[in-house]
Each structure stands twice: as structure tokens, then as C-alpha cells.
């Protein structure tokens, strides 16, 4: 079984010109990429390695490192393989590229991340709040988010 992962890693490395950085603290096979490499990496993964489904996209806020980590979970129906792509972006001006041109579903998954984490995607066709109201202030999933309606656990 692990042989499969190794051979798949080989396949991965052949598809990219530069060496890949793997993130160890992760259950899935995870590639760590820089923000400027994000779109190109995902594009290669989709077009060369046939990762035809963007299963999930989420963001994680790391305030003490001043960054937001974007997580892309891809699935290939062709290889029956999953891969996670992780990219760190600046927390104060998060402007990663949108991948909605690669997978249509990214448009709404990115809108969710925009809504809850305040990540402003570049080249997004329709970047609006998804769950919250248009006049909502703040990004609730950021760790330093405060509002009057959060009830603290009283005991």
C-alpha cells in the first residue's frame, strides 16, 4: 500500500520541474507551496495529473504567525488519489489567485472562505459574502473576531 504512495509521489515529482516541499504534519499527502506558485501548481495538478475534483477548500487562521493557511483538497477519480495543497498567505492583505477557472465549484468555496476569513481572491468572478449579510463587519472564523452576540460559556 505504501508502495502506491511512493509511486504516486514519483509521478508527482515528474510532473513538476522544481522539487516539491511536503508538509509532514498532515494525514494526507500534502504539498506546501508559495502564494505565487499556487495557481501554477493547482493548474498542473489538474491538467497533467488529472485531479478533476476540488473536493474541499478551507482556510486556517494563524494570528501569531500573521498568516492565513489555505487548504485545497483535491481528488482524482482517475488515480483514486487524494492530495492536499497548503499555501500560506499574508494575513493582513490576503490576495491569493482564484482557481474558479480550473474548477467551477471553487467560485463558491472561495466565497465561503472570503466570507468567514476575509480572504480576497484575485480574478474571482463574483466575490460576495455567502452566508452572512452584505453589511456584516469582520470575518468570524478569524481567531481575534469579536462581536456582542457571542455568548461566553458562563461556567
Amino acid at each position: 500500500m505504501s508502495q502506491t504512495i511512493e509511486s504516486f509521489k514519483l509521478l508527482l515529482e515528474n510532473a513538476f520541474s522544481e522539487p516539491l516541499t511536503y508538509l509532514e504534519a498532515s494525514q494526507l499527502l500534502t504539498i506546501k507551496v508559495q502564494e505565487n506558485q499556487l495557481f501554477a501548481t493547482l493548474k498542473t495538478l489538474k491538467e497533467t495529473l488529472k485531479f478533476d475534483a476540488l473536493i474541499d477548500h478551507a482556510g486556517v487562521d494563524w494570528p501569531n504567525e500573521n498568516k492565513i493557511e489555505l487548504i485545497y483538497i483535491l481528488f482524482s477519480t482517475h488515480h483514486n488519489q487524494q492530495i492536499m495543497v497548503s499555501a500560506d498567505i499574508d494575513r493582513n492583505q490576503p490576495t491569493p489567485p482564484s482557481v474558479s477557472s480550473l474548477w467551477a465549484i471553487a467560485e463558491w468555496q472561495e466565497r465561503e472562505v472570503f466570507d468567514l476569513l476575509g480572504v480576497t481572491y484575485k480574478n474571482h468572478p463574483d466575490l460576495r459574502r455567502l452566508f452572512l449579510e452584505d453589511n456584516w463587519v469582520g470575518s468570524p472564523l478569524r481567531k481575534d473576531y469579536k462581536d456582542d452576540f457571542i455568548l461566553e460559556r458562563p461556567w
Binding site: A25, Q27, D56, S86
Partner: peptide, 19 residues
């Protein structure tokens, strides 16, 4: 232990993933 975890399953409506 510290780390990132993702598991998915097939529910009646499709893939339910927990990250």
C-alpha cells in the same frame, strides 16, 4: 497529536469530509 487531518465518507447525498 498536532497536525492536519482529513477523512471523507459517502453519505446518502455525497461525500462528507471532515477536515
Amino acid at each position: 497529536p498536532a497536525g492536519r487531518y482529513y477523512t471523507q465518507m459517502e453519505t446518502a447525498r455525497g461525500i462528507f469530509g471532515t477536515f
